[in-house]
Amino acid sequence: MSTPLALGVIAGAILSGTSLLYATLGETIVERAGIVNLGLEGILLIGASTGFAVTAASGSAYLGVAAAAAAGGIANLIFGWLVVMRRANQLASGLAMMFFGIGVSALVGRPFVGAVISGLPKWRPPWLAALAWVKSTTLFNYDFLIWIAVPVAVLVWWLLFETRWGLGVRAVGESSAAAFASGRNPAVVQFQALFAGGLLGGLAGAHLSLSLTLTWAEGMTAGRGFIAIALVIFSKWHPLRAIAGALVFGGAEALQLQLQARGADISPFLLDMLPYVLTILVLLAWGGSRRHAAPAGLGRTFYGTE
């Protein structure tokens, strides 16, 4: 692979992988608490549309980001009402959330279609900007969401694995009976996890509309929510591995664009298949060990038994 192509792919991977990473981190927290949200796609759309709308109306992209995060959090709380309070079927509820997200985002974004916004400002450290090979690419010229993406991943890891709260979340996801015996309220913990996950999902959507494309269009997330769900499994529910996963999956998309731009003959569709095929192969390869990696509480949903 030639250097400009490689750089192009890496740069592209970082750009498109960022929203994937946020979405994956959010879903990881939620699944660690024992819940699957198939409607992640809807959360992303809500984030993207809300962020765009608020930015267009207020002129501040930062405000848009905050609104997107809040909207995502609230949407996940609605999901939480269904699956935690009403004990509804998680898969059906997730799909309902997907419809909800598609509809709400379309309504919210409708008045702002075609609006021109100045998105999130980008910043590049001056000592890097001086380098010639960097100047010609998008590398290191990022908005704040990209800059803090990896630190956020580390933060999520730290929260889940080094704090009392995270221990409770993981306990609830593995065995709500044991968590309950330890004096915790599994429902409360799950709501907390859902809210945190929703915040991150909102951020993921915001990055798409406020940085990557600077537009809003119905359905613009184009399946990223489902890729993120696959990514959670692929990275074995671990926030740090999700970084690598997001880069790989984002890179596939970037590679496709780069090859197309160069008139290469490899079909972009084959590359787009990569995330899903990879995830299935990885699931097969792990076999038993993957079953260990998944939070035990997810089994109920995935195996369809009460």
Binding site: L167, R170, A171, A177, A179, A181, S182, A296
Partner: peptide, 15 residues
């Protein structure tokens, strides 16, 4: 009342 996927100290810490 132990969680298989967590370590000994995590299980003890939980309680």
């Amino acid at each position: 009342m132990l969680i298989p996927a967590l370590s000994v100290s995590e299980n003890v810490a939980l309680f």
